[in-house]
Design a protein around this nucleic acid. Structure first.
Lengths: 200, 200
DNA sequence: CATGTAAGCGGACTGTAGTCCAATGCCTGC
DNA sequence: GCAGGCATTGGACTACAGTCCGCTTACATG
């Protein structure tokens, strides 16, 4: 079986991981994500810098780890919650519900998500969670718009709810108009277009 | 009058600006944008680091300055070139033409554009050129979709052709499918939707 | 041409992300 | 219970972006 739990985590490693996450959560809440350095996190957690980086890779990895729980929550709702977010509703409605929910999630943790997406170039697309969202959207989109190329189109749609863009939308127009614009975008794309009028 | 050419540029300053731009262009072409440090640019140009930063603000500013000429070219075509990129075609067609042209521009200078957008957080939205593209798209969109909130929606559309997203699209699906997806997105959004069937 | 002055200059300095490797101590097999 | 191997550790180290400020020099003015 593939899920043979690769090796195993040593006890001191697990302890350090918990210490780091606790310290990071506290510091980020206290001083704001931007102004907390990795040195500060390491010092507050009482571990060395090397440990921090070995475990989380880089700053975006640390942010992703902190977001993990919230993400799983949304993922659960998608996989087995009530419609329209969960299964059972038409693809169009599930798409709209997902984007609304995801936008809310991003705006609720804007700084953390931004860091997880921008700390290193292209970080956003390598995070495991992004692959999940992309897959979900692509599957629904393929159903709603069988004429379109769902995979690249899904990346294009998800671009609109990246932390940077979501942040600008809310800052410039407020949360309400931001959400409405995203919904409009998603509904426009998930509608099957009229058949071309010169369809021979 | 406002356009009174604010102060004026000192001769040595102009000379240094040219030296920096030439050196940066050469270094970037030689070694790749990512692996050239600002120190290296300053050294190659024979100026101090302070000069470099005073003039261009930060690394994204330097990249933007190098892209300036190409950008003006596209802007010219939009403002006074032949349709559908220039004026004279229906808004929907102009939108599609703009996004196709802009995607080509981004992919043609991917590393430079990426740096201009990501060197500092939110840099993309502060660059003067972005404001121009956004304005252009918003005006066309307001015409094609008077029912929609054109300004935030334009940000959402432009997100799909950011350097990060465009790069991933081309890397994963090739330039052809990337362009097709962007076109599909834009056309979907710029089509007036069917009137809701329960329109009372 | 002489002079005042402010724009411009440059490089030392700071703070941060991320790397590296010798020392440590956890776990496994006996 | 013990020993030996190897994952883990931690902090010194590197490289880089961006700041600061005392010195220089181009230009306007008389």
């Amino acid at each position: 079986m593939l899920g043979a739990r690769p090796p195993k985590e040593r006890a001191d490693a697990a302890r350090n991981r918990r210490k780091v996450l606790a310290a990071a959560a506290r510091l980020f809440a206290e001083k704001g994500v931007e102004s907390v350095s990795m040195d500060a996190v390491a010092a507050a957690a009482g571990v060395g810098k090397g440990t921090l980086f070995r475990r989380f890779g880089d700053k975006s990895g640390l942010a992703a780890a902190l977001l993990d729980e919230r993400e799983r929550d949304l993922q659960q709702h998608i996989l087995s919650g009530p419609p329209p977010l969960g299964p059972g509703a038409p693809a169009r409605d599930r798409l709209a519900a997902f984007f609304a929910g995801y936008l809310e999630y991003v705006l609720g943790h804007l700084d953390l998500v931004r860091m997880s997406e921008t700390a290193s170039p292209g970080a956003r697309f390598r995070i495991g969670a992004y692959r999940f969202w992309h897959r979900h959207v692509a599957i629904l989109l393929a159903e709603a718009r069988p004429d379109a190329d769902a995979e690249p189109l899904s990346h294009a749609l998800l671009a609109a709810v990246s932390a940077e863009v979501a942040g600008v939308l809310r800052a410039e127009y407020g949360a309400g108009r931001a959400a409405a614009a995203v919904t409009c975008l998603v509904e426009s794309v998930s509608h099957q277009p009229r058949v071309a009028h010169d369809s021979r």
